[in-house]
Each structure stands twice: as C-alpha cells, then as structure tokens.
Amino acid sequence: MKILVIEDNVELLQDIKNFLEREGNVCEIAPDYKTAYMKVGIFPYDILVVDITLPDGNGLDIIKETKKENIDVGIIIISAKNALGDKVYGLEIGADDYLTKPFYLPELNARINALYRRKVYKGSKEIVFNEIRIKPEKHEVFVNGRPMTLTKKEFDIIHFFVANKNRLLTKEAIAEHLWGDYIEMADSFKFIYTHLANLRKKIAELGGKDYIKSIYRVGYKFTDWE
C-alpha cells in the first residue's frame, strides 16, 4: 500500500518510513504542511499518517482538505498533545484513528494494516502466515485449515504478532496493545508469558510450528526465520 507520513520531526519520520517500508509498503514523507498539502493534492495514497502540530500549519487542516476534495484515503492522526478535544475533533472531521505519541511502531503498523483492510477489502481480507490463516473481522484463526479456539486476548496477540511478523515486539508494546492503561507493566509481563504459553500449546496441538521466539527477555518475535 502507499502511505504518506506527515511529521515535522525528521528523525521520527525516518523511523516510521523505515519501519513501514520493511513491511513492503511504499512510504513517502512530508516534513511540513506545504509539502504535505502538495503531495496529497497530486498523488493518490491509501493511508495518511498526520501529525497535528506542524511548523507551518495544522495537520487537521490537511484532513479537512482531503475531505473537501473528496480524496478517498484512510487517515491516522499521531499527536503528542493527548488532548481529548483534538482526538474528538480529529475523528469528527473524518480521521479514522488516533494515536498518542510516543507510540510503538508495531502499534502504528497494526493500525495502518487494520485500516487498510477495512477500507480496501471491506474487512474481508485474510492474513496468511505459512500454515496460519487469520480472518480478522470474524476473530477466527485457522492452523492447517483447522479452527483454533482462542480467548479474545489470545486472538489479539496472534493477530498483532502476524501483523508485525519478523519484528521484535517488546513486552511493553504488546502490553499496551492488549490492555492500554488498564494494567500495570509488572503484572502484564507475567500475563503475556502465560498467554503465549497457551497460544504455543494450541498452535502445536493443531500441528503448527512454534514461531514465537523469545528475544533476550525484552520481547518476542513471530518469525519463521532461523
């Protein structure tokens, strides 16, 4: 998919660009309002990632512009302000999602994928990873064609893992994706461990391989690389 990231911090912009391109996306960048405005007007994008605070303008105006020009594009706001007013207003004028800085890149990636699936495939697209097949909109997972019985959290984990395959997912990123603010980190790490143990067992029962690799106590990687 083709993504435009509008963010005034060039370093963060590069991080996002590198991350998203490794997933096989085409990612363009705009460090200011002027560039963003020009690019949105000329090139078609699937997804816009918009920072609200820009040196020469407001990201919200770009969203308004796309709506005015009837440009069909998925929009995710990224903002450091964490002000609820901005969030509500952003979603009101047509943004699809909102992420507060500092966010985890896998989280952004998962949201972009989910949004893309919703917009382009109307949610019907399956995600396939070797013998594992996920139907996101139905919350169903198949291993070797056989359905898995999963709890909601187990589904969320495997979905998050497959969406960010071959990437290091830190425990913090996983915990925030699963529970947001409702759980303390110390509790969540043990919790993640238990969930993953169950998940491994369930995949193995259906003849699936163990793709969940533990990485130096910091996190996990879902990968078929050796």
């Binding site: 963060l12 991080d15 450091a80 800085k101 985890y104």
Partner: peptide
C-alpha cells in the same frame, strides 16, 4: 509534553 514525547519515541525506536 509535546517536546518530550517525540524525542522519547525516537529513543525508543
């Protein structure tokens, strides 16, 4: 809060 969170995001990345 703005100035702090963006560098933190970069540090984390």
């Amino acid at each position: 809060s703005h100035e702090m969170q963006t560098p933190l995001a970069i540090i984390r990345n």
